[in-house]
Amino acid sequence: MSDFFVNIRWDEIGVATWDTVLMVGGSMFFIVLLGLPLGVLLFLTGKRQLLEQNTFYAVLSFVVNVLRSIPFIILLIVMIPVTVLLVGTSLGVRGVIPPLVAAGTPFFARLVETSLREVDRGIIEATQAMGASTWQIVMGALLPEARPGIIAGITVTAITLVSYAAMAGVVGGGGLGDLAIRYGYQRFQTDVMLVTVVLLVVFVQLLQMLGDRLVLYFSRR
């Protein structure tokens, strides 16, 4: 048994796990910060919504679609100058966060838009009838009512980031995925591949479980 795990260096695996947590957690923070307002804006300016703006919506929607259609590995490289400008380096965990945010924000914004659309129009109308401003409708009614959907969106986005982050090795970002590719795949160290993949599976499972619990807690149905 110990023969099989001969290539494993647990300290390296520990560092890689922490790097993955940092990349996913750090970028998720900015994705929510940027994607939530973007999603609300997409929703409000959409057809038959409170701030309907057809041209504005079409442009915003197009930009979001473009960002979503670029493969992450390409985005990672194309963005290098911007990344350097933003965080001072294009290497390591820090260098990976801007491209992760750029890829995750439009994805998350769409999920926010969708969950806002799920909110019963009657609730918007009732809040309007109370004399609420658009801002009050968003903060007081729309976001609280869409909370379970938005939390589910955060979970889906975070899990997508885990697989994106596996490509971080290209810019020396490290993390579990990188370890699996470099040692497990390129050097045929099956044991490293196995351990890292198992850790990734556990990580994703934990995220999903946490997300599901929160969704359940906030769905008062």
Partner: peptide, 19 residues
């Protein structure tokens, strides 16, 4: 907004905030 505050409204499907 002030006008609407002076007018209450109830609905067929209640439209209460579930959260």
């Amino acid at each position: 907004m002030a006008l609407r505050r002076g007018i209450g409204m109830i609905f067929q499907h209640f439209n209460l905030l579930s959260s």
